[in-house]
Design a protein around this nucleic acid. Structure first.
Lengths: 111, 111
DNA sequence: TCCTTTAATCGTATATTTGCGATATAAGAT
DNA sequence: ATCTTATATCGCAAATATACGATTAAAGGA
């Protein structure tokens, strides 16, 4: 039974969850770190660095791209990826807003 | 063919990914919002608010607790939950550190 | 003691994620 | 035209996640 009931939540909740999901795998965290460290965009270097098969890395890149966290352009026979800082900041900002604001209201936790 | 290769990444990458995973569902975002809004800890009120069955909510609470994002104490026949702000800040801080720092180094994206 | 309330856990069905090899695609080089 | 390189995509197997009803457990009240 059970199918996912994501639609039953607000759009903002779904968006934040989708952003978190894109970060919810160490391989994707690792990819973002690599992309951020090199100013120039990387393609298959990531495959050499990560302990995963080429097809798997490609899949993770696809997910990050679909989540809007990275941009990718085809450059001849290779692909160039880089972090979409704008989207990244937007989501980090929303998280901070949501929880810092709430935290400000409540001084302490009760348990 | 392996199955999850999470162990192949650094502990920090795994920790950040685990934190993100705990947030990677709208129901859990929603639960955190409810907990944050009420200073007093809530138990089954969450069940009334969320569009999910009691057992499902209980399961999401368990995941949040295992991730360390919330605390829970048994209070007679009911359970009291609240946000673990300390853990929350720790992870948010690490994310900000990682990506703000990296962003500071690189002025622009290339694609 | 028995009943009610509250919440955790079990069992189960289905959906999604993760990972890899194999194959397809696209463009430059020979 | 053919070969090589770099990536994306397909197909599949295994692991996880999501959801729910049923059951269990724990404590207060009748």
């Amino acid at each position: 039974m059970a199918v996912h009931k994501k639609e039953a939540f607000t759009q903002k909740e779904q968006d934040l969850a989708a952003f978190a999901k894109a970060l919810a795998h160490p391989a994707r965290i690792s990819i973002l770190k690599v992309l951020a460290l090199r100013n120039e965009c990387i393609c298959g270097e990531i495959v050499d660095i990560l302990p995963l098969a080429q097809s798997t890395v490609s899949q993770h890149l696809k997910e990050l791209k679909q989540a809007g966290l990275i941009n990718g352009t085809v450059d001849g026979p290779r692909s160039c990826y880089c972090i979409n800082w704008k989207a990244f900041e937007k989501f980090m900002g929303e998280f901070s807003f949501l929880f810092n604001k709430l935290k400000g209201q409540n001084a302490k936790a009760c348990c």
